[in-house]
């Protein structure tokens, strides 16, 4: 392009530094089985899985405008399918969790077709009804323990790896992979044509429609893909827990309330928000855990205050203050560069 003394770029110095730093952090975390204790690894796995759930919820609510309070439907679905496919179909757990994702996508198609008839806030509660339907259906399956649930048989657990430390390392890496993979997938999706369409919808639905962007279809795809990835994360969650029951699998508090608070506190509609939010959430949890229910009271209060006073969350505040963007999504216009290159 020789159109003028400007260069349009997505990259920035902060983004390049962040990419390098992110890679280093990823490598250090991947090496955790050699430097971290058993309890630390369990905690880190949980952090990763919440990070993945938060990134997915953020994609739906923050970019596609689909505010769901029923994502526990797919967390529980993934968990139950992992158990069903390994116990009854004899699949290897890693294969089973991918298959759970695929089946979740299939189930999500009619679910979305139905729920998309509800607008806005009613869509949100509709997703909750759907999650209740999932819970009640799985509670009817006697072979999976009905209402009281079931445990993963020892043979299947051992099929992961022969030694206990081997199993723990594998399950840790799967969680890390899920988080890194989800963030990468969301990032790449948002940079794609569909992703740009999504951002256009969020910024102005009417204008996007007039540009010929098929809003329904784009939202539909986001819903289905998110369902699949959420189910995989759900399968991983219950691969860690080794035990599943309808109430645990389809808990609105565990898999939706906390996730929403993470995204809101961190900063909705940004890729960085869920990361910050997850760190804050676990920091709060680890320091206030002894307080029991008071901790949840505080969490709800913090979320309300953030929503009212800083609707763009912690990352929004940082962005306004420093103009930072770690994931190069937006374009920046730079002056003077073309002169040097000419």
């Amino acid at each position: 392009m020789s159109a003028g003394p400007f260069k349009v770029t997505r990259s920035s110095r902060a983004a390049r530094i962040a990419a390098v730093a992110g890679l280093i952090v990823l490598l250090v975390l991947a090496a955790a089985p050699w430097w971290a204790g058993r309890a630390d690894m369990r905690l880190l796995s949980e952090v990763f899985l919440y990070l993945a759930l938060a990134s997915l919820w953020n994609l739906m609510a923050g970019y596609a405008g689909l505010v769901s309070v029923g994502q526990q439907a797919f967390v529980g679905f993934g968990g139950y399918l992992l158990f069903a496919l390994t116990i009854f179909a004899g699949l290897h757990p890693v294969v089973a969790l991918l298959a759970a994702g695929g089946l979740a996508a299939l189930v999500a198609v009619p679910v979305a077709a139905l729920l998309f008839r509800l607008r806005g806030a009613y869509f949100a509660i509709g997703t909750w009804v759907m999650a209740e339907v999932f819970r009640l259906v799985f509670a009817q399956v006697g072979a999976l323990g009905g209402g009281s649930g079931t445990s993963l048989p020892v043979g299947i657990v051992k099929s992961l790896a022969a030694s206990r430390s081997g199993r723990e390392a594998l399950s840790y890496w799967l969680a890390l992979g899920a988080a890194a993979g989800t963030i990468a997938a969301v990032y790449l999706f948002l940079r794609s044509r569909k992703g740009l369409a999504l951002t256009a919808i969020r910024d102005n639905e009417l204008a996007a429609r007039s540009l010929g962007i098929d809003i329904w279809r784009t939202k539909f795809i986001v819903y289905v893909v998110t369902a699949a990835l959420t189910a995989i994360v759900g399968a991983l969650i219950f691969l860690q827990k080794l035990r599943i029951s309808p109430d645990a699998a389809f808990s609105v508090n565990d898999w939706t309330a906390f996730v929403i608070f993470i995204v809101v506190i961190g900063g909705i509609g940004t890729l960085e928000g869920p990361i910050i939010g997850t760190l804050v959430f676990f920091a709060l949890r680890e320091t206030l855990a002894d307080l029991g229910t008071t901790y949840l009271l505080v969490l709800g209060l913090v979320a309300i205050v953030v929503m009212l006073k800083a609707p763009k969350g912690i990352w929004g505040l940082i962005q306004i203050r420093f103009g930072l963007q770690l994931f190069p999504l937006g374009y920046r216009v730079l002056g003077n560069l073309a002169n040097k290159e000419n």
Binding site: A121, A124, A257, T293, L296, L297, G300, A303, I304
Partner: peptide, 17 residues
Amino acid sequence: ILPPLLVTFGLSVILQN
């Protein structure tokens, strides 16, 4: 639609606990 949903969701968690 997000603020009312999230704020009442937060209220729900507060009330329950």
